[in-house]
């Protein structure tokens, strides 16, 4: 049985690697699809003298065939060398590392907030299906799904920072508590949208399990409410895990808007600036790194199913 699981994992890993390769090829190729002369684009705002253009062409090996350039870039990227930023001239790897902490803090906080609030909310809604509490939670989650992060962020900023003055308007603060204080509003902004999805999916998963025969049978055997709920939650765990794994992808989209709105110097803001500046090396690096992180989460989610659901283990073993 373990051997088959290993085979599955190797195949799954192989697929992920192929997918990432294809994606990186596309992202790298975008540089050549962008309008205008590549060398001029790569020069950025610098003076486009013939010497400068020649220098750029040599530096980026633009005279070589496309695939050669790509493999050259990829082999360096695999060692962590993503080249230098056109905009700042600094190594891309270092720029990303400097900003990683902030983004990780905001998204981690948002993830934590949304899971801690939304999973219980989804369970409660499912348990009270059709009642006012359920309708209120579902209504709230529809609004949460519909509200773009930047709009929610601006409204929160106006109400809690400008109006009430409870939270700082911009910036990151200094010291641990102050930093945390600065991150509350961005994290809440992200968590609202994220939590809405989690509420919806958790509610659906738990409600589906509550309709199952085994719940009626468990109740008929006199098992207490808490016990029955425990059984249901265990069975609803796989779809809820799936939704949480999907959320990780969503987080990266959302953090971009939150960082721009709250003027936080994180990876999202870096991506925005780099895209607007056509800072190709940074954009390529960021996109590929995010794709790797999301693929790894999906892989972890698959592993989690294996430990949670014996049926999946069994299907794989056959």
């Amino acid at each position: 049985m373990t051997r088959q699981i290993l085979v599955f994992l190797v195949r799954r890993l192989g697929m992920t690697v192929l997918l990432l390769l294809a994606l990186s090829l596309l992202v790298y190729g975008l540089m050549f699809l962008a309008p205008g002369d590549i060398a001029r684009n790569l020069l950025g705002t610098r003076n486009a003298t013939p010497q400068a253009l020649d220098q750029v062409r040599a530096q980026y090996h633009l005279d070589k065939p496309f695939l050669w350039q790509y493999t050259h870039w990829l082999s360096h990227a695999l060692t962590g060398d993503f080249g230098t930023s056109i905009r700042t001239g600094a190594p891309v790897g270092r720029m990303m590392r400097e900003r990683l902490g902030l983004t990780a803090a905001v998204s981690g906080l948002a993830f934590l907030l949304s899971v801690l609030a939304a999973v219980p909310a989804g369970v409660v809604a499912a348990l009270h299906r059709g009642e006012w509490l359920d309708r209120a939670l579902v209504g709230w989650s529809v609004v949460g799904i519909s509200a773009p992060g930047f709009a929610v962020g601006l409204i929160l900023l106006y109400v809690f920072a400008v109006g009430l003055g409870w939270f700082p308007v911009y910036g990151t603060g200094s010291g641990f508590l102050d930093s945390l204080w600065h991150l509350v509003l961005p994290a809440v902004t992200l968590a609202l949208g994220l939590g809405a999805f989690v509420v919806k999916l958790t509610r659906a998963a738990v409600a589906r399990e509550l309709d199952e025969d085994y719940v009626v049978f468990a109740r008929s055997r006199g098992l207490g409410r808490a016990r029955v709920l425990g059984i249901v939650l265990r069975n609803a765990a796989v779809p809820v895990l799936t939704s949480l794994a999907l959320m990780v992808g969503y987080l990266f989209g959302g953090t971009l808007l939150a960082e721009v709105t709250f003027a936080l110097p994180g990876l999202g803001a870096l991506l925005e600036q780099s895209v607007l500046f056509k800072d190709f090396p940074v954009v390529q690096a960021l996109t590929v790194v995010v794709a790797v992180l999301i693929s790894l989460t999906a892989l972890l989610a698959d592993l989690a199913y294996l430990t949670v659901d014996p049926r999946i283990r069994n299907r794989m073993a056959r």
Binding site: L19, L20, F252, G253, T287, V290, I294
Partner: peptide
């Protein structure tokens, strides 16, 4: 689907 739509 490997990347969030907004980001891509």
């Amino acid at each position: 689907l490997a990347l969030p739509a907004v980001l891509l």
